[in-house]
Write a protein that binds this DNA or RNA. Structure first.
Lengths: 212, 212
DNA sequence: GCTGGAATGTGAATTTTTTAACAAATCACC
DNA sequence: GGTGATTTGTTAAAAAATTCACATTCCAGC
């Protein structure tokens, strides 16, 4: 089928599929049906087939999908078949945790630069990486070919961090700070807000109680 | 209007509204129109009015919304008008970062218990909290009235953590570990996967390049 | 090489979500 | 107290996403 616009939800699900498929692979499963994969991901099997159809035909009728092959195909579809160089701005608690998080390099997102504007932090080594002054971003982005910027500053400094990153020529920004920021339209901006999951949980728990 | 089923996306947006409204409040803005709020949140103004309509009528026609009042109303709607006691299982890098993250208590989610099964970690004090053996979950959940469980273990231990939490009588689980888990249907389960934002960024960046 | 069972890929139907449009309500000003 | 400029709440329309349903393809066994 191959299509133009891909729903955000599809991208998120494809990430889940990779995760679950990797588990299948570890367990030694070679072939999987959309039905079985769907169950493991708690989605509808048509959903899976449709999501994949945006990018091509990866299965074999009457058989299913070859697990390893499908992982490779999805990764390629998501442009995750090569590593991405990331720079992190704001080395607080969360920033530090992300710098040390194994999953990043495992998933192909390599954090190559750590930046902060606090003179007490500059020069410190975290996870083998020296914290550099944010003002050096332009030089470092070029030097390390950074493409994705991660903002983990306090909310009030997020916009400035974004400005630095944009000025330095970054292509995409993932904002973990709890504040909205504005960037030119050619920069891809994503907000990470895991609190809405807490709100959702709280909401549904109390809602369920009310029902009783 | 007041309605039965509330879309997940609405909950996520309401969380954003609270954030942006709080900024407005800090700036000294007392009244805001759905149009202005919409712009700040990058959504459609009808969207905002519709989202709010699920829960009641909070505005004044011809005037707009009183910022403080709206914040309070949304928080009440989301059951965020009281504190929620949380327990965190898995004190690794991410777990530690969350334990130290100020935003939690600020938003009304208080992490009151930290659990791990590593004997080297048990007894350690993090952010004024003693790390307790996971086996003590049942006792602690009762003692501290924990309602929401946070899983930040490595993926292979997430299911066991979930089992402990469920057995201890927790009501909702937020799973930060990159693995799917299964819980009884009466437990509200949310997955936090911030990597899909990275996939989305990578995808759109390379897609844009391709277009040139 | 045929046949039956299985599972994909996809167009059509359904459901859900978003956007538009407007009547109803409010206020400032005359 | 009436008028016009605003802005909400809500109904209707449009768009988008999900699910259904099935023709098409593939394989194993005879």
């Amino acid at each position: 089928m191959k299509s133009e616009h891909i729903p955000k939800a599809t991208i998120a699900r494809l990430a889940t599929y990779i995760q679950v498929l990797s588990e299948f692979k570890r367990e030694g499963t070679d072939v999987v049906s959309s039905e079985r994969l769907a169950e493991a991901c708690s989605v509808n099997s048509s959903q899976i087939r449709k999501d994949l159809a945006y990018f091509g035909e990866f299965g074999v009728r009457g058989v299913g999908y070859y697990v390893q092959e499908l992982i490779t195909s999805i990764k390629r579809s998501l442009r995750n078949d090569r590593a991405w160089n990331c720079g992190l701005v704001g080395v607080g608690n969360l920033g530090r945790a992300l710098l040390r998080h194994r999953e990043f390099s495992r998933k192909g997102f390599i954090i190559r630069g750590a930046f902060d504007c606090d003179p007490y932090k500059i020069g410190e080594i975290v996870e083998g990486m020296e914290i550099v002054c944010s003002r050096q971003l332009p030089a470092k982005v070029k030097e390390l070919s950074l493409e994705i910027g991660i903002i983990t500053t306090p909310p009030e400094r997020a916009q400035r961090a974004a400005n630095y990153l944009v000025g330095a020529g970054i292509k995409g920004i993932i904002n973990f700070a709890p504040s909205r920021i504005s960037v030119p339209s050619h920069i891809h901006l994503e907000y990470v807000d895991f609190f809405h999951h807490f709100y959702a949980a709280a909401f549904h728990i109390r809602f369920a109680e009310h029902q009783e």
